[in-house]
Design a protein around this nucleic acid. Structure first.
Length: 340
DNA sequence: CACTCGTGGTT
DNA sequence: TAACCAAGAGT
């Protein structure tokens, strides 16, 4: 009887696992579920390199889920600034509070799945990695590896159901967590999106995509839509060494984050809203920034008359010397850099 | 299902 | 340099 895919992969993982701050070495006891969960949320659509400093800072500042549950929304949002997808930070606090209330993380995939910010992938990953449960973990790496192993040629996202079924068939009953991480490491280091390193792959002899001669063709992706460019304005309003900052509303673009006041570009898309105070403005320059589904050209403006300034609406005067601690998302950090 | 939601590195 | 892409979730 020949070795199974999971046996081969687990054997490969024993000597090729990446060493990561949130990870236990292959075959060693599972890490703290809090660390697993925190890293998985941070890693959603985010590179390992980008996550590392944020993970270290969060663990240092909030060593337990109870500590994070006790933190203020404002502090967590500011600590998340720059990492992107800020709904993750809003859900992170909500999830920490729910878990603290429960007395700890549930150890079943179905219960994990019910927590805020925990979807199919994260629930399976935490169940497998932190609790040793058998769970079918499918992220973009696994999708790519499985699509290639079985040469699944239908386009995403329709092919996902078939991918999951195939992933289920190769997931072992034991060590599903190591298996999942092995699949992800293989996808990240060998079975890469472009130019896969098939000669180094432990599964090369059983890979249908490699046999086809063009493994990089899998998985087939749909054409992407053009990215529109929006125009907007942001306002740099200074008084006594401080700048006027607002907190963005709701769950939309950059929701919950501290920001410069703007003209409503994110809601309207055309930057046609009103400035936060009357008077004339002069230009400090233009910030170009690309989001996932649109780009923006943000004009940064400063009031010409600088006496007796008091902007409309809610906000706070933030000391300019401490601007790095304001927790501005990157777009507004760029605008602040331009102003300074 | 289709769309929203960030950012920075790589090619 | 424009495009692609990363340990996805919520609506």
């Amino acid at each position: 009887m020949s070795a199974s895919i999971s046996d081969i992969l687990l054997d490969w993982y024993a000597s090729h696992a990446r060493s990561l701050p949130w990870r236990a070495p292959p075959g060693t006891p599972a890490p703290d579920p809090y660390r697993v969960w925190l890293s998985e949320v941070m890693l959603q659509q985010t590179t390992v390199q980008a996550v590392k400093p944020y993970f270290a800072a969060f663990i240092e500042r909030w060593p337990t889920v109870a500590a994070l549950a006790a933190a203020s929304d404002e502090d967590v949002m500011a600590a998340w600034a720059g990492l992107g997808y800020y709904s993750r930070a809003r859900n992170l606090v909500a999830c920490a509070r729910a878990v603290a209330e429960m007395g700890g993380f549930p150890d079943m995939e179905s219960e994990l799945r019910a927590l805020p910010g925990v979807g199919d992938y994260t629930a399976a990953a935490v169940a497998a990695i932190a609790f040793g449960r058998r769970a079918v973990v499918v992220d973009a790496n696994v999708e790519r590896v499985v699509a290639r192993l079985f040469a699944l040629g239908d386009p995403l996202p329709g092919v996902r159901k078939a991918i999951r079924e195939k992933a289920d068939t190769i997931t072992p009953a034991e060590r599903a967590g190591d298996f999942a991480q092995a699949m992800m490491d293989l996808g990240a280091t060998i079975c890469t999106p472009r130019d896969p390193k098939c000669l180094l792959c432990p599964l090369r002899d059983m890979c249908a995509a490699r046999a086809s001669g063009d493994p990089a063709r899998f998985p087939v992706k749909p054409p992407k839509k053009a990215k529109p460019v929006r125009q907007g304005r942001a306002y740099w309003i200074e008084r006594d060494g401080a700048v006027w900052l607002v907190r963005r509303e709701g769950r939309g673009m950059l929701g919950g984050m501290r920001a410069l006041p703007d003209d409503g570009w994110s809601a309207r898309g055309d930057g046609s809203g009103d400035p936060p105070l009357d008077g004339r403005f002069e230009s400090l320059g233009l910030v170009r920034h690309a989001f996932t589904h649109f780009a923006i050209e943000l004009a940064v403006l400063r009031p010409v008359e600088t006496d007796c300034i008091q902007p409309d609406g809610e906000g706070q005067w933030w000391p300019i010397a401490d601007i790095d601690e304001a927790g501005l998302p990157t777009l507004f950090a760029k605008a602040a850099r331009l102003a300074l």
